[in-house]
């Protein structure tokens, strides 16, 4: 028990460093702001007219929401994905530039170091997700205080899982350049194949779905965990679920533990 307080202090120290770096990195902040602006202000507004009702009884988006509202939670998830997975750059940075050794010879156990780092990355990613919430008014999403609290808690859990995933990726990639390419080839496909930018109509049966989208795409979307992560956040923010929300929460929970353990295996080697 006597060694517990120093470890907490250490975790706080590692977390604090990540926060300082994240808040001082103007590029990262800028990315965290420009992404939602591009997706919501430009893509969202650009496509909104194509999804709006023109004739009563006939509609392209058979959901009780406007396209902007539909897109809004997905943009939050996108922002979180980017920040979380790009967080791995910080891990590579530490490894390449020697700071990792300073941490590894410290009396802190490895799991505590990783926990501190991941908590820091998850906090930064949650912050970036929360920035998007400010645009809720723009997307015509009305939020109550409990909804915001719930959303932030869920965003943190999602960030945590994705940050661990990023650390796992960092263990596989050796260079910064490689990671930049790698992260884009991971993030964007996951995002697009997740029913984030186009809706799968929940009122349609599977056979009807296959009529509008090719089978392979639907398979991809059903197999993609981000689909359920986005869906769970939609449930919180606009009260709309295509799937039972507990699938999303469950997957995020499993991801938090599973990816953390996996990251622990690859961290510091």
């Amino acid at each position: 028990m006597s060694s517990f307080l120093p470890i907490l202090r250490g975790i706080h120290g590692v977390w604090l460093r990540e926060i300082m770096r994240a808040t001082r990195d103007k590029g990262q902040l800028l990315g965290g702001v420009s992404r939602p602006l591009i997706w919501l202000l430009i893509l969202g507004v650009g496509l909104n007219p194509y999804f709006r009702g023109e004739v009563f009884g006939e509609v392209r988006l058979v959901l009780p929401y406007s396209y902007l509202q539909f897109l809004f939670p997905a943009v939050i998830v996108l922002n979180i994905m980017y920040t979380s997975i790009q967080f791995a750059v910080s891990v590579i940075w530490d490894r390449e530039f020697g700071f990792l050794r300073e941490i590894l010879v410290s009396p802190m156990p490895r799991w505590a170091v990783l926990l501190g780092k991941v908590l820091g990355g998850a906090t930064a990613a949650t912050g970036h997700g929360t920035l998007v919430l400010i645009l809720a008014r723009f997307a015509d999403v009305t939020l109550t205080a409990p909804q915001v609290a719930q959303a932030i808690a869920y965003m943190f859990a999602l960030s945590f899982a994705l940050t661990c995933f990023g650390v796992v990726l960092a263990g596989k990639v050796r260079s910064f350049e490689g990671f930049g390419v790698f992260s884009n080839t991971v993030i964007l496909p996951l995002y697009f194949a997740s029913s984030s930018v186009f809706p799968l109509d929940p009122s349609l049966t599977r056979t009807q779905l296959v009529a509008s989208y090719p089978e392979w795409l639907i398979m991809l979307i059903y197999a993609n965990p981000i689909t359920y992560a986005v869906d769970a956040l939609r449930g919180i923010l606009i009260n709309f679920n295509q799937f039972p929300p507990h699938i999303g929460f469950g997957l995020v929970g499993i991801g938090m533990i599973g990816f953390f353990l996996w990251a622990l295996r690859s961290f510091g080697r």
Partner: peptide
Amino acid sequence: RRWRKPVIDIGVITLLLVALSHLPPD
């Protein structure tokens, strides 16, 4: 002093987003 700059940055960003959220979407 340590947090002043980040806090100002985030404040500016927040203000920017609040301002942008008042843009008419259509």
